[in-house]
Amino acid sequence: MIPLDAASSSPWHFWGYFLDHRSQDLGYLWDHTWLSVVPVVVGLLLALPLGWLSRRYNWVYPPMMSITGLLYTIPSIALFVLIPPLLGLDPLSPLQVPIALSVYSVALLVRVVADGLGAVSPETLQAATAIGFKPLGRFFRVELPIAVPVITAGLRVAIVANVSIVTVAGTIGFDNLGRLFDEGFKLSTDTPYYPPIILGIILCVLLALVLDGLVLLVNRLLTPWRRAVPT
């Protein structure tokens, strides 16, 4: 099916490889994209209340940071295979990868949200309260917007890390750009067959750059006041 002559196995043949397997590769790219993005969004939605709790109640902070630090210590491949028995899913469930990635994102972002909220100056908080904000309004209209730059810095780390971690799921058979490495490896039994490997690396790096850029763009749109101040 795949011609294995000398020319087509050259590393520079990745574009030809992409054209030959366009629909499959685009499918991998799409899977990879949503696997990178959705868990970070889920993670952020969970991290906001948890981060707020860790700031609101001082005693919550240390155990919260210990637990999230512990979760982040577990290697991704281990977390992938441990999620199903822990949650009672099938050993190879399509949910285990997004769940594991969400766990990482929460673990990273809780600290980021807590630290970001912690960076809001007490004067600002007192002023907001004095003006008459209720706690919830103060959180959404004052504290959260001010914490946005710190939170976006965390989001960038989380999303770029995810792009890389998703490829690990490719080694245990889940569809994403990691499968290109799997194919390259299997086709390299006698002589190296580079195109899918190079294509995978390039697409991963490009995806990471694009998603990182999107987060930066959202950050820019959400914090117009930072553009007014030259730095």
Binding site: S164, T167, G178, Y193
Partner: peptide
């Protein structure tokens, strides 16, 4: 760090292993 570790691993293995 921007490179996917799996890709890097596979790439070096197919280059060096033969």
């Amino acid at each position: 760090r921007a490179l996917p570790s799996v890709g890097l691993l596979v790439l070096l293995v197919v280059i060096i292993a033969p």
